[in-house]
Nucleic acid binder design. Structure first.
Length: 810
RNA sequence: GCGGGCGUGAUGGAAUGGUAGACAUAUCAGACUUAAAAUCUGAAGGCCGAAUGGCCGUGUGGGUUCGACUCCCACCGCCCGCACCA
C-alpha cells in the first residue's frame, strides 16, 4: 500500500516496503518480470491542517513532503521503479479519477442522496469523525451536532452479494480479513413487516420493521424507532418534549461506536402499535437513541428475553420480559441476562408462532418467516449491513467532484475534455470550512449542457477513492485514459499486496468494489475484478509512549531519543511510561529510520525490521537490537573476506557444509514464499554459524559463501553484492538465478526418536531413518530408561510415528 | 457495545497434534587485551539435587487425545476496525 506523504518515513514504512522488496528481489531472481512501484496517497486532512497552522498551500506542503520522503526512502535500497511514480494530487491522476466518476455516473454507479454529517455549530464546518473528541469539535470545543446534507454516493451495496460470494475465492488472503469482510457485509435473512399504529398521526399509520429473529415475535414488548425516523420527525413538529429528546440524540457523534457505547435511552411517544398476530395486544412505541436510521428500516421491535440491549432497555423502562424459548433442560426465566444461544443450537419454544416445540433458532426463523408470509404479515427478505459509500467531503484538499449545478439542467457532469477540474492556487485557510465554497470565482462556470452560467460542485472526494484504483494506474501512470488496456491486461492483477491490518475492511472492500465498477466501465479486464491476488497484512511497529504533564495537567509527549532511564535527558524530569502503541507522530513514540540508516546503514535497518518478529504481528521497537544487527553484518562481511582468501581444494567437512548449504537454501526459499521472513533470517544465522566453523575445503567454502550471498541478497542487497563480488560471483548477485536446493540432501540417514512413556519423554534412540516399525518398537522397549519407567509393567500399546516419536502406553 | 485478532524464558520469538524454548537480543563465565570495545569459546526456563536425575512450566480454568503452545468451551488481559484519519 502506498504511503501518505506525512513528511517523514517511519518504521512501519520500512517494514512494509522492505517486505515488498524482499519479494520483488526474490521474484526477479526466480525469473519473473517484476513491477514494484511507489506513489503517494497525497490528498487528505493533514495538508489542510498544516495550511491552517503554518500557512501556505496544501499542495506546497504535500509536494515538499514527497520530496523529503523520497530522499529518505532512496538510501534503503528498495528496488522501486521510480519511473512510474505519481501522487494522487497530481492533476494527471485525479483528472482520470474525475473521468472515472463521470463513467460511474453514467452507469448509475454514483448518485446523490441526503446523509448525515458531524456539524460544528461554532466553526460552521463539517467535522471528520477524527475531529470529534468526546462529542465535541476538536478546535471549537462545541457540542457536535448531526446535520443532513445532500451528498454523493457510490452504489457499493448493489454489489453486496457479489462481494460476499467472491470472498470464497480469495485463496491467498488472510482468513481473518475475509471473515471481517464477511461480517462487515453482514448478510442476514429476516422478516420485514409492519406494526399498525393506534391513533397515529396523519400519514403514519404503520411502522415498518425488519427483524432477523421473527421467531421471538411473541416475546415483543416494545417498538423503538430512530430519532431520525420519519415518524419521529413528524411527532417532533407538535411535541416539544419529543423535539427536545430528538435534538439531544442528534447531539451525538455519528459513529456507530459512539452510538453503541452511549447510554441507551428511550422516549415513550405514547403511541401504541398493534401486534400483527394479536390485534388486541398493544405495544408502546419508543424513540430510542440506539436505533440507527441507516440500518434496516430505522425501526425495531424489542424482544428483551433474547437480546441483551433490549433487555437492558426493558428493565430501565419497566417493560415486560417474555421468554419465547428456553434451554432444552428447561432453563430459567430470563432475569438480567438475556438468553441468546447460537442460532444453530436446539431450544424449546414456549411461545412459538410456527414450527416444532424443539428446534434450532435457524429452523424457527425459517418457520416463522414462512408462517408470517402465509398469513400476509410481511415478507422474508435478505438484507446486507453494507451501506452505500458516501464519498462527498466538504473539504478543499481532495479530488473535485466533476459536476456542475445548473438552474435549468440540474446536476450535469463536466465534459471529459474539460478535465482535470483543477484545484485553485489562490485559497486561504484562515477560516474553518471549505475554501472552495468561499472562493470568489472557482465555483463559477458554464453549464456543460446548456452553456448558461452555473456553479461547480465544491465537495471533493473521499481520499479512499484515490486509493481504490492507484494499483491499476501504476500499469500506465501517464495514459490519457484511466488505464491503458494493453498494459493493464499485461500487468494486472497485483500478485502480492502488502499493508496494515487496519485496512482489512474499508480500503480493501472499496478497492474490490472499485475494480468491479472500473470493469463495468471498460477500464479493467474481467480477470481484475478481484485486483489483489494475494494479500499480506503486516503488524504495526510499536513503541512505548513517554509523557509528562503541563501546568494544566494536559499530556505532553516526548520523543524516545529525548528520554533516558525514564527521565528527560534535558531536565531530568521523570516521564510516565505508557505501554507500547502504534508509532504515531501525535504521541511522539516514533523512531526515525533515517537515524538508524545513518548510524548502522540501510542493510542493518532492513535486516533488523524483518528479523525476530513474525511479519503479521506487531513488533516493538527497541534501540538495542539495531546495534547487534550491525555487528552481526560486520561479522558476515569479515567471514566473506576470510573465505575469499582460502585456496581452492577439498576438505573433510565438504559433505556437511554442502548439506547445510542445501538445507539453508531450502529453508530460506520456503520462508520467503510463505512470508516467514523472521524464519528465513533464523535459517541464515544457522547457516552462517555452520559456515564460520566449517572445516570444509576452500572450494566448498567459497561456494557456500556465494550461496549465502544469494540467499541474503533480498534482505541485505548492499552487503550481498559486496560479498558476491569478493567471492568472484558473475555479474550482480541481484541478477543471478536463485539457487535450487537438492532435496535428497535434506534428509539425514539417522534420526533421533524421543521415547515417551504415557506421553512423558523418558529417553531417545537414534535409528536409521527407514528402520521398520517392529524394530523401532523393539529397540525402544530395550532402552534402559524406558524399562525403568515401565517398572516391569506391560505396554498396552506402542505408537510409532515414523521419523518423529515413539509413545509407549502402559 | 459490536466484529476480528493476539497472549510461550529477562526480551523478540521457534515448534505439519509428536523432544517446548530453534534462531537472536540482553546476561554471566572464560580467552585475547595494559585496559575497554570488538572478536572468539562456553553457560543459561523455574524449583529440588553433589550428580545420574526428578518435578513443574506456553495468560487462567475446564475438555478432547496415546500425546495439546497447537483443537474445543468459558474467563482475563492487550491490540485493530466500526463506514468523514490515512
Amino acid at each position: 500500500m502506498f504511503p501518505y506523504p506525512s513528511g517523514r518515513i517511519h518504521m512501519g514504512h520500512v517494514r512494509n516496503y522492505t517486505m515488498g522488496d524482499v519479494i520483488a528481489r526474490y521474484k526477479l531472481a526466480t525469473g519473473h518480470n517484476v513491477l514494484h512501484p511507489m506513489g503517494w496517497d497525497a490528498f487528505g486532512l493533514p495538508a489542510e491542517n498544516a495550511a491552517m497552522a503554518i500557512g501556505g498551500h496544501p499542495r506546497a506542503w504535500t509536494y515538499q513532503n514527497i520530496d523529503d520522503m523520497k530522499s529518505q526512502m532512496k538510501p534503503l535500497g528498495w528496488s522501486l521503479d521510480w519511473s512510474r511514480e505519481f501522487a494522487t494530487c497530481d492533476p494527471e491522476y485525479y483528472g482520470q479519477q474525475q473521468a472515472l466518476f463521470i463513467d460511474f455516473l453514467e452507469k448509475g454507479l454514483a448518485y446523490r442522496k441526503k446523509s448525515v454529517v458531524n456539524w460544528d455549530p461554532v466553526d460552521h464546518t463539517v467535522l471528520a469523525n477524527e475531529q470529534v473528541i468526546d462529542g465535541k469539535g476538536w478546535r471549537s470545543g462545541a457540542d457536535v451536532e448531526r446535520r443532513e446534507l445532500t451528498q454523493w454516493f457510490f452504489r457499493i451495496s448493489d454489489f453486496s452479494e457479489e462481494l460476499l460470494a467472491a470472498i470464497d475465492d480469495l485463496d491467498n488472503w488472510p482468513a481473518k480479513v475475509k471473515l471481517m469482510q464477511r461480517n462487515w457485509i453482514g448478510k442476514s435473512r429476516g422478516l420485514q413487516f409492519s406494526f399498525d399504529l393506534v391513533d397515529a398521526p396523519q400519514g403514519a399509520d404503520a411502522v415498518e420493521v425488519y427483524t432477523t429473529r421473527p421467531d421471538t415475535l411473541m416475546g415483543a414488548s416494545f417498538i423503538a424507532i430512530s430519532p431520525d425516523h420519519p415518524l419521529a420527525r413528524t411527532l417532533e413538529q407538535d411535541r416539544d418534549d419529543i423535539a427536545a429528546f430528538n435534538t439531544d440524540c442528534r447531539r451525538m457523534a455519528a459513529t456507530e461506536e459512539a452510538v453503541e457505547k452511549a447510554e441507551k435511552r428511550g422516549f415513550d411517544t405514547g403511541l401504541k402499535a398493534r401486534h400483527p398476530l394479536d390485534p388486541a395486544w398493544e405495544l408502546p412505541v419508543y424513540i430510542a437513541n440506539f436505533v440507527l436510521m441507516d440500518y434496516g428500516t430505522g425501526a425495531i421491535f424489542g424482544s428483551p428475553a433474547h437480546d441483551q440491549r433490549d433487555l437492558d432497555f426493558a428493565r430501565k423502562y419497566g417493560l415486560p420480559v417474555i421468554d419465547t424459548f428456553v434451554a432444552l433442560d428447561g432453563g430459567k426465566p430470563v432475569e438480567n441476562e438475556a438468553f441468546v444461544p447460537p442460532k444453530s443450537e436446539k431450544v424449546k419454544y414456549v411461545a412459538r408462532i410456527a414450527g416444532d416445540e424443539v428446534m434450532t433458532g435457524e429452523q424457527a426463523v425459517d418457520a416463522a418467516i414462512a408462517y408470517c408470509e402465509s398469513i400476509g404479515v410481511g415478507t422474508g427478505v435478505t438484507k446486507y449491513r453494507l451501506r452505500d459509500w458516501g464519498i462527498s467531503r466538504q473539504r478543499f484538499w481532495g479530488c473535485p467532484i466533476p459536476v456542475v449545478h445548473c438552474e435549468s439542467c440540474g446536476v450535469v457532469p463536466e465534459k471529459k475534455e474539460n478535465l482535470p477540474i483543477e484545484l485553485p492556487d489562490d485559497v486561504s485557510f484562515d477560516k474553518p470550512g471549505n475554501p472552495l465554497e468561499r472562493h470568489p470565482t472557482w465555483r463559477d462556470c458554464d453549464c456543460p449542457a446548456c452553456g448558461k452560467p452555473a456553479r461547480r460542485e465544491t465537495d471533493t472526494m473521499d481520499t479512499f477513492v484515490d486509493s481504490s484504483w492507484y494499483y491499476a494506474r501504476f500499469t500506465s501512470p501517464h495514459a490519457k485514459t484511466p488505464t491503458d488496456p494493453v498494459e493493464v491486461d499485461y500487468w494486472m492483477n497485483v500478485d502480492q499486496y502488502i499493508g496494515g491490518i487496519e485496512h482489512a475492511i474499508l480500503h480493501l472492500l472499496y478497492s474490490r468494489f472499485f475494480a468491479r465498477a472500473m470493469h463495468i466501465c471498460g477500464h479493467l479486464p474481467a480477470k481484475s475484478v478481484e485486483p489483489f491476488e494475494a494479500l499480506f497484512t503486516q503488524g504495526m511497529v510499536t513503541h512505548e509512549i513517554y509523557q509528562t504533564r503541563d501546568e494544566k495537567g494536559r499530556a505532553v509527549y516526548h520523543l524516545p531519543e529525548d528520554v533516558e532511564d525514564g527521565k528527560l535527558i534535558k531536565t531530568g524530569e521523570p516521564v510516565e511510561v505508557i505501554p507500547s502503541a502504534k508509532m504515531s507522530k501525535s504521541k511522539k513514540n516514533v523512531v526515525d529510520p533515517i537515524n538508524i540508516v545513518r548510524d548502522y546503514g540501510a542493510d542493518a535497518a532492513r535486516w533488523f525490521v524483518l528479523s525476530d518478529s513474525p511479519p503479521e504481528r506487531d513488533v516493538e521497537w527497541t534501540a538495542s537490537g539495531a546495534d547487534a544487527t550491525f555487528r552481526h553484518l560486520g561479522r558476515v562481511w569479515a567471514l566473506g573476506e576470510r573465505v575469499a582468501g582460502l585456496s581452492e581444494g577439498k576438505g573433510a567437512g565438504d559433505d556437511d557444509l554442502n548439506r547445510a548449504m542445501h538445507k539453508a537454501t531450502f529453508a530460506v526459499t520456503q520462508s520467503i514464499e510463505t512470508f516467514a521472513f523472521n524464519k528465513a533470517i533464523a535459517a541464515l544465522y544457522e547457516f552462517i554459524n555452520v559456515l564460520s566453523r566449517s572445516n570444509a575445503g576452500g572450494t566448498m567454502q567459497k561456494q557456500a559463501m556465494r550461496t549465502l550471498a544469494q540467499l541474503m541478497s533480498p534482505f541485505v542487497p548492499h552487503l550481498s553484492e559486496e560479498i558476491w563480488e569478493t567471492l568472484g560471483g558473475e555479474g550482480l548477485v541481484a541478477e543471478a538465478a536463485w539457487p535450487a536446493a537438492d532435496e535428497s540432501l535434506l534428509v539425514e540417514d539417522m534420526v533421533t526418536l524421543p521415547i515417551q512413556v504415557n506421553g512423558k519423554r523418558r529417553s531417545e534412540i537414534t535409528v536409521p531413518r527407514d528402520l521398520g516399525r517392529e524394530e523401532v518398537e523393539k529397540r525402544a522397549l530395550e532402552d534402559n530408561a524406558v524399562q525403568k519407567a515401565l517398572a516391569g509393567g506391560t505396554p498396552k500399546k506402542i505408537i510409532v510415528v515414523p521419523g518423529r516419536i515413539v509413545n509407549v502406553v502402559v
